[in-house]
Deep mutational scan, measured.
Amino acid sequence: VTTYKLVINGKTLKGETTTKAVDAETAEKAFKQYANDNGVDAVWTYDDATKTFTVTEMV
């Protein structure tokens, strides 16, 4: 189990959160659900070296 981080650069929601998951795909599903629940529709990137997902909402 690995800890993954999500950085949110949204128009109305900004911040960071983490989740523990067995792999990046599982973490991504959890983070996308979190973003969807909070109304963030954005572009996703992932950095495997830092285990960090970044979501940037387009203006």
Rank of each mutant, 00 (worst) to 15 (best):
D48A: 12
E57F: 14
T2G: 06
D41V: 12
T17A: 12
D23F: 03
V40I: 14
A27Y: 01
E16Q: 09
K5D: 02
N36Y: 14
Q33M: 10
Q33I: 11
K32V: 05
E25D: 08
E28M: 14
A35E: 02
T3K: 05
T12A: 09
V59N: 11
V59F: 12
F53D: 00
T45E: 10
D37H: 10
V7Q: 04
E28N: 04
A49N: 09
E57P: 07
V7D: 02
V1R: 08
T56A: 05
E25S: 10
V43W: 07
G10I: 15
G10Q: 06
T50E: 05
E25F: 10
V55W: 06
E28H: 12
K11E: 08
T26Y: 04
E25K: 12
K5S: 05
A21Y: 04
K32Y: 05
Y46H: 00
G10E: 03
A42E: 04
V22C: 09
E57T: 06
L13I: 12
T18P: 01
A30C: 13
T45A: 08
E25A: 13
N36L: 15
T19N: 03
T54F: 11
D47M: 02
K20H: 09
F53I: 03
G10Y: 15
T45I: 08
N36I: 15
G39N: 09
W44V: 02
A21M: 02
D37W: 14
G15F: 15
T19W: 09
E16S: 10
T18K: 05
N9M: 13
V7N: 03
N36S: 14
A24G: 03
K51V: 02
G10V: 15
V59K: 09
K5I: 09
E16W: 13
T17P: 03
V43C: 10
N9V: 13
V59W: 13
D23E: 02
K20E: 13
E16A: 08
V55L: 12
T54G: 01
A35S: 05
A49T: 11
Y46L: 01
K20F: 12
T19S: 04
V22P: 13
K32G: 02
K32D: 01
T19Y: 14
V43S: 07
G39H: 08
F53E: 00
T26N: 06
K20W: 11
T52L: 02
V22H: 09
D47R: 01
V22T: 11
D37T: 12
D37N: 09
W44I: 04
A49F: 10
T26R: 05
K29A: 10
T3N: 04
L13M: 11
G15N: 07
V1H: 09
T2L: 10
D37L: 15
T54S: 05
T52Y: 01
D48H: 08
A21K: 02
K20P: 04
N38R: 13
F31V: 01
L13F: 15
T54E: 04
D23C: 04
V1M: 14
V55R: 03
D48V: 06
A35C: 15
E28D: 02
A27F: 02
T50C: 03
V55F: 05
V1E: 12
L13Y: 14
A27S: 01
A30T: 13
T12K: 09
G39P: 04
D48Q: 08
N38K: 12
F31T: 00
V1Y: 14
V22E: 08
D41N: 12
G39M: 14
E16I: 13
N9F: 13
G10H: 10
N9T: 07
T18S: 09
D41S: 10
K29W: 07
F31R: 01
K29L: 09
T56S: 08
T3F: 06
T56Q: 07
G39S: 07
T26V: 05
A21Q: 04
V40K: 05
E28W: 15
T52S: 02
I8F: 13
T18L: 08
N36A: 14
A49M: 09
K20V: 13
Q33C: 07
A24N: 04
T19D: 02
F31D: 00
K32T: 05
T52D: 00
V43F: 10
I8C: 13
M58Y: 12
K32H: 07
V43M: 09
F53N: 00
V40A: 06
E16G: 08
T26C: 05
G10R: 08
V1I: 12
G39C: 11
E28L: 15
Y46E: 00
E28T: 03
K32A: 05
M58A: 10
V43D: 06
G10P: 03
E25W: 10
K11C: 14
A42H: 08
I8S: 03
D48G: 06
T54K: 03
L13G: 11
N36Q: 14
T2C: 12
A27N: 00
T52A: 02
K11I: 14
A27M: 02
N9W: 13
D47I: 03
N9D: 08
K29P: 01
N9A: 07
K5L: 07
D37F: 15
V7C: 07
D41I: 12
V43I: 12
V22M: 09
V59I: 11
V55M: 12
A49S: 10
V1L: 15
T54Q: 04
D23Y: 03
V55H: 03
K14M: 11
V22Q: 08
Q33P: 02
T52C: 02
T52I: 04
D47K: 01
T50Y: 03
W44T: 01
L13S: 07
K51Y: 07
V55D: 01
V55P: 01
N36M: 15
F53G: 00
A24W: 14
T54I: 06
E57A: 07
G39V: 13
T12P: 05
V59Q: 11
N9R: 11
Y46V: 00
A21E: 03
E28C: 15
A30G: 03
V55C: 13
T12S: 10
K5W: 12
A30H: 14
T56K: 05
N38A: 13
D48N: 07
L6R: 00
K11R: 13
Y34P: 00
T45Y: 08
V43Q: 09
E28I: 08
W44R: 00
T50I: 05
Y34W: 14
T45H: 10
M58R: 12
E28S: 07
A35R: 06
A21G: 03
Q33G: 05
Y46N: 00
A27Q: 00
